[in-house]
Simulated assay, not measured.
Amino acid sequence: MSDYAPDWVVPVMRAGYLSRAVVYAVVGGLALVAAIRGGEAEGTTDALAELQAHWWGTPLLWLIAAGLIAYLVWRLVDAALDLEAYGHGAKGVVARAGLVVTGVIHGAIGVAVAGVALRGADGGSGGTQTMTAKLMAMPFGPWLVGLVGLGTIGAGIYYAYKGISEKYKEHIRVTSTTQKLDPVLKFGCIAQGVVIGVIGVLICYAAVTADAQAAGGVGEALGKIRAAPYGWILLGVTAVGLMAFAVENAVEGLYRVIPRCDGPDVMTLARRAKLAAQGAL
C-alpha cells in the first residue's frame, strides 16, 4: 500500500458505500411499492424510519448512520490525499471539491439517521426545506438558494453523464460479477441523476418564488415524478433505477479500486473496455 494511503482507508470506504447501498435499496423499494399499490413515495429519512417497525430496525439504523459518517471520512481523506489520483490541476481540484461536497451531504444524512434511531421519525422531509429557509433569510438569500439549486442540477447531470459515458467503470475491478452487473450499474447512475436533477429544479423554483416550502428532497422529487402523466410508470422505473443505484454502491463497496492503494496496474472495467476496443485482449 502506498505511503499516501492510511491502512484504515479501504475498510472505511467499503463501509460507506455499503451503507449507501442499504439507503437507496430501502428508498427505491418503498418507491416501487408506492408505484404498484398507489400512495406517496417517501424521502430518505422517512423511508429509513420504516425499518423501526422491525426488531432489527434500530440496530440497522445505527449501522447505516455509522457507515454514512464513514463515507464522509473517506471522501475527506480521499480529497485531501488525492487517493484517486485526480491531480492538482483545475479539473482535479473541481473533482476533489466534489468529493468533499458529496461526503458532507451523506455525513449529514448519517446524522439524521442517527436522530431517527434515537427519537424516531420526525415526519416530513424538512431537511431540504429547512436549509432553504435558512439560506433564504440571508442577504441575497434567493440568489444563494438559486446557486444551490443550479449546483444540485449540475450534480444530477454529472450522475447521468457518469452513467451514459460509463465513467463509473474507471474505479471498479474486473470480476465476473462486475461484468454481469455492468448494465445495472449504468442504469442506476442515470436514475440517480434524474432524481437529483428534479431536486435541483425544486430548489431553483423555491428561489424564484422566494418560498422555501417549494423546495424538497428525495420524497418531493419522487412525488413530482408520480404526479406527471403516466406517473406511476415513471415512478416505477425510477424506483427500479434507485435500487439499481443501490447495487452500484454495493459493487463499489466490494470491488472499488483506489489507485493510491492498489497501484496503476489493476484491471478495471474501464481499462478492459479500452483494451477490448484496441483488440488487445
Score class of each variant (00 low, 15 high):
Val145Asn: 00
Thr209Gln: 15
Ala227Cys: 08
Leu222Val: 04
Gly29Ile: 09
Arg37Asp: 09
Trp62Gln: 01
Glu42Arg: 14
Thr128Asn: 00
Leu147Ala: 15
Val27Ser: 02
Trp62Pro: 03
Leu30Val: 06
Asp122Asn: 12
Leu234Gln: 05
Leu99Pro: 03
Cys261Leu: 14
Gly141Ser: 13
Arg96Ala: 01
Gly241Ala: 04
Met13Glu: 15
Ala97Asn: 14
Ile105Asp: 02
Gly38Asp: 12
Gly123Ile: 11
Ala108Tyr: 12
Gly29His: 07
Val101Ser: 03
Ala34Trp: 03
Arg14Val: 06
Arg20His: 09
Ile190Ala: 00
Ile64Ser: 01
Ala53Lys: 11
Ile164Arg: 10
Ala112Phe: 07
Val93Cys: 03
Asp82Thr: 02
Ile164Pro: 03
Trp74Met: 00
Ala49Asn: 05
Arg119Asn: 14
Ala31Asn: 12
Tyr4Asn: 15
Leu81Arg: 15
Arg37Met: 11
Pro229His: 06
Ala41Tyr: 09
Val251Glu: 01
Gly123Gln: 11
Pro6Trp: 05
Thr209Glu: 11
Ala70Ser: 11
Ala15His: 09
Gly156Val: 00
Val100Tyr: 08
His106Val: 03
Gly188Tyr: 02
Gly141Cys: 07
Leu76Thr: 04
Val266His: 14
Gly231Val: 09
Val104Cys: 03
His54Asn: 07
Trp8Ala: 03
Gly107His: 06
Ala160Cys: 06
Lys224Gln: 15
Leu281Asn: 15
Gly188Cys: 06
Leu51Gln: 03
Tyr17Trp: 14
Val184Phe: 08
Val240Tyr: 06
Gly39Arg: 06
Ala221Met: 06
Ala206Asp: 07
Thr130Ile: 09
Tyr86Trp: 13
Arg75Gln: 11
Gly151Trp: 09
Leu147Val: 15
Ala95Arg: 14
Arg37Ala: 13
Gly163Asn: 02
Gly92Lys: 05
Arg20Met: 11
Val104Gln: 09
Gly110Pro: 04
Arg14Ala: 01
Arg260Lys: 14
Ala112Asp: 13
Gly110Ala: 07
Val237Asn: 00
Thr44Arg: 03
Trp232Ile: 07
Ala41Glu: 05
Ala160Met: 10
Met267Thr: 10
Val94Pro: 05
Ile153Ser: 01
Asp46Thr: 14
Gly241Ser: 04
Leu235Trp: 05
Gly89Pro: 04
Ala160Leu: 07
Thr132Phe: 10
Val194Cys: 03
Ile105Cys: 00
Val9Trp: 05
Ile69Tyr: 10
Pro229Ser: 02
Gly103Gln: 00
Leu32Lys: 12
Arg14Asn: 05
Thr45Asn: 06
Tyr159His: 06
Leu281Val: 15
Ile199Gln: 02
Gly57Ile: 13
Val77Cys: 06
Gly87Glu: 15
Val23His: 00
Pro259Tyr: 07
Gly193Asp: 12
His88Gly: 13
Gly156Glu: 09
Ala70Trp: 04
Ile157Pro: 01
Arg119Trp: 14
Ala280Leu: 13
Thr177Trp: 08
Ala228Thr: 12
Gly200Lys: 01
Ala5Val: 15
Ile203Trp: 08
Asp182Pro: 06
Gly156Tyr: 04
Ala207Ile: 13
Val208Met: 12
Tyr71Val: 01
